[in-house]
Each structure stands twice: as structure tokens, then as C-alpha cells.
Design a protein around this nucleic acid. Structure first.
Length: 858
DNA sequence: GCAAGGTC
């Protein structure tokens, strides 16, 4: 019999702590080993991994891209190496002394593989220790207790299925990525990547763009009129909008008229009549069922509808999860676990800002939560835990997302809404008009979940045979629109439908496409490079841009998991296919590389150089700043400056005067359109500097009677040169208040890029400078009373320092204020603070949140 | 430095 403590291994620290808490009845203590938390009580220890702590890679001799032919990677071996050294070391130390080991990683395929990786690390140091496996789909008292009472063994076949995926992905991804990058001579940070998931995702975006390019708009007409009831002694007249329709050749009802003559004929018929006769009134009641619980995709979609990018929504959800306010945000599940008691959870909100809504839901006699189609074993759907944050502990964004999760839970336990649909058809001179009204009879879940549109369209109660006055007849000429680009959440939903990526990676894949220079803007638009990569793949490696690759791999993995195939069977077959793909690639290497190179250049090209006619390109200087330079360099040294903030994106719009494409600077919330860089540079040179006072560094001070120093430069013994401050426009488009003696004197103050500067007659007494206003002639925006530029800049700096804490994600204005009360005034003091002490001193802030902030501050 | 998948 083996002695020593039982070691429990989970997939993440958070799960380790909660399981320790459940199994120990709250008595577990936290110890640190190599910086890793170990929860200890009685004879037990629980340690959390951080997902995969080992990663797959090729042997070192394959690491230099230039030394190795990409095709050689197909037959290279694949090794596993620790990627999280501290955790691996802690696990080995714990395993050496363990009397038994329990693998308690997540209950899904990847969890089985992570469990097997832990198993192998344990075996390296302890050959005999018994290892078991427990499975549970949510970390609740009942499930965890039951799982530990009935341990099972690791499923090595399921883990092997995951390993096959790792090998196939690495082999295809690395070999093709290196091949494309080498062919196009792109070896730096701008390498050209492809992979099983990013490939089809990119093709989705490129295909949609091809549809948009090929789209041929068609003209059509729509006809509308207002109808008004007669009213009566005690009834008011009621007016509503109706639309012309007809029955087309297929016998279906149509509103769009494709023929101008038909449209005009109908228009005339309607115009000649004074009134319409109601011929049909149909009324029906529709039940509008509340939405299913949130899985990751639906959460991202809902957050997207209130303005959060997929990336941002997930990042906030992760923070809310680690702080303990919501459940695990990466899940496919849309069915609540059995032991979630909706009443108990609703009761947790009494006394909170959600109290009224929670109580109204508790008043229902019966509560039956909705359920979606996906029921999985990984984690429960995303829902609030019932531990409530005080609103001040969260930033505005965090609060908004938290409220969304709370309200979604509310919606899933709320009654359905009912609508009354009213359809009215009226005839006018042989033509038909119709109106579809909808009225909300019972708000149901809409009362607690305001994120869906629940607006009504009121059509009055009319009766068959009733006469209605016709007015305001209008014939609208329209055009069919091209299909719309995918938005981020639509992309994620489509990826899910196609079966590519996972709940935890889909949003990262989209981010990767941005980072690789394949897509730009939001909704994303493909670059020329992206089109070229998709074209090249379609021609020679079709599988890498097809969802089929994942579908096939899923089948193969299922076969491995069922014991019907082996890892070697699957990877060998994949190797064979990839060898074949490489035959085509190698033959066309040069043409392919050329095409990719040309496309990359096209993405950076603005238009012709005014000096030599070659292409002007966006380039990066040695200091990392962007500028426009000539392709003919060094023969042609023509350049134009670009703004210093953001990354340049070249727009479709072209400046008519210079034939150069306009430039947009991407800088998150500070993104702006710079326009034609030649126009901006010319405008700056034409704009006269406007002197507003003396330079505080080298100008004439109030006591300007001081003697000159006599060396002929006009400088006084105090260092004066008579420099003046002027409002200037720089060639890169930015504006500032600077010294007229630049570059000898570099004194400057920033000014906003947009709006016109107005110099007022009011003067700042302290600095003897005029107060400035910024006005916006082309918009309704109120003028900005900027004041004295020196005072303004000082205030700006003070604000920057004052809100330094808010630069950390998760700290909002209110929280920063509270931290300052506890003498945490800047990032440095936050980093040095003791989390437990802060938690004790600051209301609504837990030690775990402080630790998160500290980690982010590093 | 390549992929995709975990997690922070």
C-alpha cells in the first residue's frame, strides 16, 4: 500500500481552490510552491495547472526557417516540452511524495489530454503511484462529492485523439506557413501564416468580399401611403402607414416592384382614388419565448449588440469570473445543470439594484428555466454565481457586462412575452395596400431583459368594409444592396456552425487575422494579402482553407477515441496528403511568391510619387514610426510624414488632386481619418503660424529690460532669445503651440487635431497668454473652451497622473477613487500593496481582484 | 519566429 498524501490535479487554479473548498468543507489552507497555489488539508493536496503545461514542437535542428526545407517538417518528429516550468516543477515535487493521484481536469477531450500530460509528468518521478480520473460538469457540492466517490480511470484513447489533432495542426500549419513566408521572402515579424482554423475563417471573409465586388445592383420601387380612419363623435382619427403589394408570377406576395412602368401604373391608380376599403383584417397572438442560457458564442453576440468587440467581451467576462461574480465564460453548454436552483439564485439579488426584477420573478408560481440545444459536459452555461459585486467595485464596462449576464439569467427564468399581430389589407382602385401591426400584450421576459428590440407598430382596430382616407402617397426608387460584411460576432457564430475553432479560441482567431495583416477595420475587410493567401491556398492546398479539414479531423478523432483507429493511422494519412500538396506547391514556388509579394506591396501603396512616378508606400522608420516613402528609394528620396499616433490603414478613397489613397490611423478609440498625406502636408505649409505670446523658455520675460549678454545673438543674460509662441500646423497634420525658434527651442504644448482654434480676448494672468476656444464649424458639437494652453496642458497632465490607476483594465473611476482613499494613488503603490490588507480596507474590493490588477500592472 | 488548444 502506498503512503503519502493524495494529490488532486485540476485544469486551473480557480477550479483547484473551489474543489479544495468543497472537499475540505472550507478548511483547506493555501500554500505556495514555485509560485503555484497548493490547497492543503488533512492528507490531501490540490494543485491547479494552467491548461496545457507542455507544448508540442519540432526538434531544435528544425528551428531555423532558412536551413530547413518546409517539406521536411512533414517527416520531422514532434516532441513535447514543458511550457510552464514553474507549474511542471511544482507538479513533479508534489507527485514524488504523493500516495495517490486524482486527475480532475475539465470533462472534455482537451481536458482528458491535459490530464494525460499531467499523468506523464507524474510518471516521470513516481512509477508506482496509483492514478485515477474524476469527471464532473460543474463544480458544485453534489457533483464534485459524487465524482470523487466514484473515481474512474484516464481515457487514453480520448487523449490520443487530442494528440493527433496537435500533430496534424502543427505539421500542416508550420510547413505551409514556412513555405508561403519563404516563397514571398517574408521572414521577419510579417510572416505569412495559414492553419486549419484561420484558413477557412479567412476564406469566409474573402468569399464575402468577392460577392460584394461581383454584386450588380438592381433597381426596384416601393410604394407607401398613409391611411386614416374616419373617426367619429368620440373617436379620434388614427393614421398609419401601409405598403403597396401585389401577387407575383409565382403566386407569392411581393412588395418590391421590379418594373418601372408597373410601379408608375400602381402609383397612378392609388393617386386617383380618395379612399381605400378594408378587405381583410387578420389578428393573431404570438408567443415570444425567452432566450436560452448563454454559451460563449451567444454571450459574445449579445455583448456585441451593446457595443463590445468579441475580444473585449471575453476579457471582461474572464475578469468577472476570476473575481467570482459569474461562472466560467468558456462553455458550449446552453442547459443549466440540475442542481442550479433558480429561486435560490434569484433570492441572492434581493437588496441589490436588481431586487425589484428578482422579486417579480420570484412571484411566479412555477419557475422552469429555458434550455438550448447544446448540452455538454464541459461547464454550465454562463450565469451569475450569486456573489454580488458592489457597483463601485466594477468599472463601467464591467458593470454593463455583468448586468447583461444577470439579466440573461433573469430572462431564462422569466415568462414568455405575447404579441398581438394585426394585418390589415385595403383595396384602392384595384390595387392593394397592407399594414402589419404588432402590439406587446404581455411584456414577459422583455421586462427584465431590455436588450432585444420590443418596439411596437400600432395599427388601429379597423373592420372589414371600413373606408380609410389615403394620403401622402410616395413612390420610392431603391436599389438592391450587396451582402453585408460579417461582423465579429456573426463570424464567430458562423465558425461555430461550420464546426471550426472552439469556444475558447474563436475570438482569438479573429484577433490573429488582424495581427497578421489579413483583415482591417470593423466589420473586418480583407487585405490584398488575404486575398492572395486564400487564392494560393485554393489552388494548391485547398484543404487548409476548407471547413472539411476540421470535419475530417473530427471524424478521425472520434475513431481514435472509440478505439477504431490509432494516432499513427491518422497522422500517417495526413502526412501522405500533405506530401501530395507539397508537390504542387514546389512546382509553382516562384509564381506563388511573386503573387504574394505583389499583394503585400499593393496593401502598402498609396499612389504615384510626384517626383519620379514610382509608387509611394507606407514605410516604418528605424524608430518605429510610420511615414510615406518612395519605392524608388534610394534613387528617389521623396517622403511625406504621417501622424505619430496609431497604425496606418490605406483606404479605398483616393484624393483626386494627387491620386493618392487616403490614410486612416488605427489607434483604438482614438482612430481617425488622416486623409491624403500630400494635402495635409501642403495645407500645413500654407497655414501661417499665429503668434499668441512670448515663449516661456526663451522669450522676453516681463522683466525684459535685462541686459543682453553681448555675444550678438540677442540672448539676454537670463537666456532669452526673444522666442515667441505660435499656433502651428505640422506637415503630418498635428497642431500645437510651439516656439517660433524651433528647432533651436523645442518648447511646445499639444492642441487637438480637430476643430478650428479661436483666439479670444481673455488672457490668462499667470502666463500672459490668450484663452483658446476650439470650434467645430461642420458639426453641432459645442465649442470647447480650452483656455490658456499652458494651464490646459498642466490640467491634462494632472488628469493623466490622477487617473493613472485607471490605465489598468478593471479599475474604473469609482474604484480608483476608493483606492486613493486607502492611499493607493498610483500604479507603483498598487503593485507594492498587500492584497489582503487592501481588501480589508476598501469596501467591495476582494484580495483576488487586487492580485489581478497587480498581475496586469506588470 | 510556424498551428490550435488550453489558461492568465
Amino acid at each position: 500500500m502506498t503512503s503519502g498524501p493524495e494529490l488532486i490535479v485540476t485544469e486551473k487554479d480557480n477550479a483547484a481552490r473551489r474543489i479544495a473548498d468543497i472537499l475540505s468543507g472550507g478548511t483547506a489552507e493555501t500554500e505556495r510552491m514555485n509560485g503555484v497555489n497548493v490547497y492543503t488539508w488533512g492528507g490531501k493536496r490540490v494543485v491547479g495547472l494552467s491548461g496545457h503545461v507542455v507544448g508540442v514542437d519540432f526538434p531544435a535542428e528544425y528551428s531555423d526557417w532558412r536551413d530547413v526545407e518546409p517539406v521536411e517538417l512533414i517527416d520531422a518528429s514532434v516532441e513535447k516540452r514543458p511550457t510552464q516550468e514553474n507549474i511542471v516543477r511544482a507538479l513533479r515535487r508534489l507527485a514524488r511524495k504523493a500516495g495517490s493521484v486524482v486527475i480532475a481536469t475539465d470533462y472534455d477531450r482537451e481536458g482528458e489530454l491535459i490530464g494525460k500530460e499531467a499523468y506523464e509528468l507524474v510518471r516521470e518521478v513516481n512509477e508506482d503511484v496509483p492514478v485515477s480520473r474524476v469527471r464532473f460538469s460543474s463544480i458544485t457540492d453534489r457533483e464534485v462529492t459524487e465524482a470523487f466517490a466514484n473515481p474512474d480511470s484516464l481515457d487514453f484513447d480520448l487523449a490520443a485523439a487530442g494528440e493527433a489533432r496537435q500533430i496534424v495542426d502543427l505539421m500542416w500549419g508550420a510547413a505551409l506557413t514556412r513555405f508561403l513566408s519563404l516563397s514571398a521572402r517574408q521572414l521577419g515579424e510579417d510572416f505569412i501564416s495559414v492553419g486549419r482554423v484561420q484558413g477557412p475563417t479567412l476564406k469566409l471573409i474573402v468569399d464575402r468580399e468577392r460577392e460584394i465586388d461581383a454584386f450588380d445592383p438592381e433597381d426596384y420601387w416601393e410604394l407607401y401611403a398613409d391611411l386614416t380612419t374616419a373617426g367619429g363623435a368620440d373617436e379620434a382619427e388614427e393614421k398609419f402607414e401601409a405598403q403597396y403589394f401585389y401577387i407575383d408570377d409565382d403566386g407569392t406576395e411581393a412588395e418590391r416592384v421590379w418594373d418601372q412602368t408597373q410601379a408608375e401604373t400602381a402609383h397612378m391608380a392609388l393617386a386617383s382614388a380618395q379612399s381605400a376599403t378594408v378587405t381583410d383584417v387578420r389578428r393573431r397572438t404570438r408567443t415570444d419565448t425567452p432566450p436560452a442560457p448563454f454559451n460563449t458564442t451567444q454571450f459574445i453576440r449579445a455583448a456585441g449588440s451593446i457595443g463590445y468587440s468579441a475580444q473585449r467581451a471575453m476579457s471582461i467576462a474572464e475578469d468577472l469570473y476570476t473575481a467570482g461574480y459569474i461562472t466560467y465564460p468558456r462553455t458550449d453548454n446552453t442547459v443549466y445543470p440540475e442542481d442550479l436552483d433558480p429561486r435560490e439564485l434569484l433570492e441572492a439579488f434581493s437588496g441589490s439594484t436588481f431586487a425589484d426584477d428578482a422579486e417579480s420573478l420570484l412571484d411566479q408560481e412555477e419557475i422552469e428555466p429555458t434550455a438550448g440545444d447544446e448540452e455538454t459536459t464541459d461547464h454550465p452555461p454562463i450565469h451569475p454565481t450569486g456573489e454580488l459585486p458592489s457597483p463601485s467595485a466594477l468599472s463601467d464596462d464591467e458593470w454593463e457586462v455583468y448586468e447583461l449576464v444577470v439579466r440573461r439569467f433573469f430572462a431564462t427564468v422569466a415568462p414568455p412575452a405575447t404579441w398581438e399581430h394585426l394585418r390589415v389589407v385595403a383595396e384602392v382602385g384595384g390595387e392593394s395596400l397592407k399594414a402589419n401591426g404588432k402590439r406587446l400584450l404581455e411584456p414577459g421576459y422583455h421586462a427584465v431583459y431590455p436588450y432585444y428590440n420590443s418596439s411596437e407598430n400600432i395599427v388601429p382596430d379597423v373592420e372589414e368594409g371600413e373606408e380609410l382616407a389615403v394620403s401622402n402617397l410616395r413612390l420610392e426608387e431603391k436599389q438592391t444592396q450587396p451582402p453585408r460584411r460579417y461582423g465579429q460576432s456573426r463570424l464567430i457564430e458562423t465558425m461555430e456552425q461550420m464546426g471550426i475553432g472552439t469556444k475558447a479560441t474563436r475570438h482569438d482567431v479573429i484577433q490573429k487575422l488582424y495581427d497578421r495583416g489579413y483583415i482591417e477595420s470593423d466589420p473586418p475587410r480583407p487585405t490584398r494579402l488575404a486575398r492572395a493567401v486564400v487564392e494560393a491556398s485554393e489552388e494548391f492546398a485547398d484543404l487548409i482553407v476548407s471547413e472539411e479539414m476540421t470535419a475530417q479531423l473530427e471524424q478521425d478523432m472520434a475513431a481514435i477515441a472509440e478505439g477504431k483507429a490509432t494516432l499513427d493511422d491518422v497522422t500517417e494519412e495526413s502526412r501522405e496528403y500533405l506530401r501530395h500538396v507539397f508537390e504542387g506547391l514546389m512546382e509553382n514556388r516562384e509564381a506563388l511568391g511573386d503573387h504574394l509579394q505583389k499583394s503585400m506591396k499593393a496593401d502598402k501603396t498609396l499612389g504615384p510619387c510626384p517626383e519620379c512616378g514610382d509608387d509611394l508606400l507606407v514605410r516604418k522608420s528605424r524608430h518605429g514610426s510610420y511615414f510615406v516613402g518612395c519605392n524608388g528609394y534610394p534613387d528617389c528620396t521623396y517622403t511625406l510624414p504621417l501622424p505619430s499616433t496609431g497604425r496606418p490603414l490605406i483606404l479605398e478613397e483616393t484624393c483626386e488632386e494627387h491620386g493618392l489613397r487616403e490614410v486612416k490611423m488605427l489607434a483604438g478609440r482614438k482612430t481617425f481619418v488622416h486623409g491624403c498625406p500630400q494635402c495635409k502636408a501642403d495645407a500645413a505649409e500654407e497655414e501661417e503660424d499665429l503668434v499668441i505670446g512670448a515663449c516661456p523658455e526663451c522669450g522676453e520675460s516681463a522683466a525684459s529690460e535685462t541686459p543682453r549678454d553681448g555675444d550678438g545673438d540677442g540672448e539676454t543674460v537670463d537666456g532669452e532669445h526673444g522666442g515667441e509662441l505660435a499656433i502651428k500646423r505640422l506637415r503630418n497634420g498635428s497642431r500645437l503651440v510651439g516656439c517660433t525658434r524651433y528647432p533651436d527651442c523645442e518648447y511646445s504644448l499639444p492642441l487637438p487635431r480637430r476643430g478650428d482654434v479661436e483666439v479670444t480676448d481673455d488672457r490668462c494672468e499667470e502666463h500672459d497668454l490668450p484663452e483658446l476656444h476650439i470650434v467645430y464649424p461642420d458639426s453641432d458639437r459645442e465649442p470647447w473652451e480650452l483656455g490658456c494652453p499652458i494651464c490646459n496642458y498642466r490640467e491634462y497632465q494632472a488628469r493623466q497622473n490622477g487617473s493613472e490607476l485607471e490605465t489598468i483594465e478593471g479599475i474604473g473611476e469609482k474604484t480608483a477613487e476608493k483606492l486613493k482613499m486607502a492611499e493607493i494613488t498610483d500604479v507603483e503603490s498598487l503593485k507594492n500593496a498587500d492584497p489582503d490588507e487592501i481588501a480589508a480596507r476598501v469596501d467591495g474590493v476582494g484580495a483576488e481582484r487586487v492580485r489581478q490588477w497587480q498581475a496586469k500592472a506588470d
